[in-house]
């Protein structure tokens, strides 16, 4: 199917395969179509169908909330072309960075699967070819027999790898998380598409890093820490991470944090914030180099933000209400410019 998007300056044309989401077809062809969640919730990938037939996909997608049926508006991340199509895309079509990696489809196989806590599991997906991604990016995954893709941020980082490492949090009533937790999924295959996402880290930008994560939001931030550490970034840049979980039993990745902290004790600050229980006495003894606090992660992190932001890039990742609750005070009280905030809302 030929998809045509007319803009004043040029007409974009790309092929979509049978059953392929229009967003995926465009991005794969190097057309930087607008999107944010890639999973039907945010509405950023809105387009209007001028000509042609589409299957709009997920009928209840929250991203369609304000859409006008009369204008044939739809979400490119959900819909599939059934004939050649001509579309209008109201948002700008522009690349984020020149070194962005064109995403593609792969058949992935789960090659590692382990429980990290009672409701967080870690798994690795091996894809047929080596590639790379920006630290902080995500893939969308489709499990056998489940409708629709879900987004998961990579935890690992490498200049070239065929392995994507993910964590997934148990989400009551959630279909994919149910599937993942139900039984050991080692050797299962998944359809994956990526890499995607703009809450990324680029050493050449030279920023200090301030990071706030709730629960599984730490995934992409771990990838950023990995990348930074691989290029010895913390030799002369600082990072301050606030990671919120409920109780000491819900903490994971402490070893990985410690490994980075030990190498650059002065420039790396890792703060674990428990919302429901105080830290253990061993944690409080301070021997392991991490700081342990009690409270809500946003309340603990905000006072540490430097007014005006200086040279710092701020990364926020986790449940949408947490990210929303942080954006306002960061801009209003801490006077952080909007282009110094990168976020992923996990809806």
């Amino acid at each position: 199917m030929l998809i045509e998007i007319e803009k004043k300056s040029k007409t974009y044309r790309f092929e979509a395969n049978a059953g392929e989401k229009i967003l995926h077809a465009g991005l794969r062809a190097g057309v930087p179509l607008p999107f944010e969640c890639a999973t039907g919730t945010c509405g950023s990938c809105k387009a209007r169908v001028n000509q042609g037939d589409i299957d709009e996909g997920w009928p209840e997608a929250p991203g369609k909330e304000n859409f006008k049926a009369a204008k044939r508006e739809m979400l490119m991340c959900q819909c599939v072309a059934q004939t050649d199509c001509n579309l209008t895309v109201p948002s700008k079509i522009k690349a984020f960075r020149e070194d962005d990696i064109n995403p593609d489809h792969h058949q992935g196989k789960i090659t590692d699967y382990e429980m990290l806590t009672s409701d967080v599991l870690r798994f690795e997906v091996k894809v047929p070819i080596e590639g790379t991604f920006h630290a902080g990016q995500f893939f969308v995954l489709q499990a056998p027999e489940l409708e629709g893709y879900r987004a998961y941020s990579m935890v690992n980082y490498s200049q070239s790898t065929d392995t994507l490492e993910f964590i997934i949090k148990k989400f009551p009533g959630g279909e994919l998380s149910n599937w993942a937790f139900e039984s050991n999924r080692l050797n299962e295959t998944l359809d994956v598409f990526g890499p995607l996402g703009r809450a990324t880290f680029h050493p050449d930008e030279g920023h200090d890093l301030f990071m706030i994560a709730g629960g599984s939001g730490v995934a992409g931030l771990m990838s950023i820490l990995e990348h930074a550490n691989q290029v010895n970034y913390f030799q002369d840049h600082k990072v301050e991470l606030y990671f919120g979980v409920r109780t000491p039993n819900d903490l994971f990745f402490a070893e990985r944090f410690r490994a980075i902290k030990t190498q650059h004790p002065d420039n790396v600050s890792i703060n674990i914030v428990f919302s429901n229980e105080p830290p253990t006495s061993e944690q409080l003894s301070g021997n392991d180099g991490l700081n342990y606090l009690t409270g809500f992660v946003h309340e603990r992190a905000l006072p540490a933000v430097l007014e005006g932001g200086g040279n710092t890039m701020h990364y926020l990742a986790g449940p949408a209400p947490m990210v929303d609750a942080l954006i306002r005070p960061l801009i209003l009280d801490s006077k952080i410019p909007a282009d110094r905030i990168r976020y992923d809302k996990f809806n």
């Binding site: 944010e36 954006i327 306002r328 801009i331 006077k335 909007a338 282009d339 905030i341």
Partner: peptide, 29 residues
């Protein structure tokens, strides 16, 4: 909308404008 120092920011995707002129700042298009 979040207003501070004559800059308005929409908290959805962080578009910003100079409130006096309406001109876009940062990521706003």
């Amino acid at each position: 909308g979040i207003c501070a120092n004559n800059v308005m920011t929409c908290d959805r995707h962080l578009w910003q404008w100079d409130m006096k002129t309406g001109e876009p700042l940062g990521p706003a298009e």
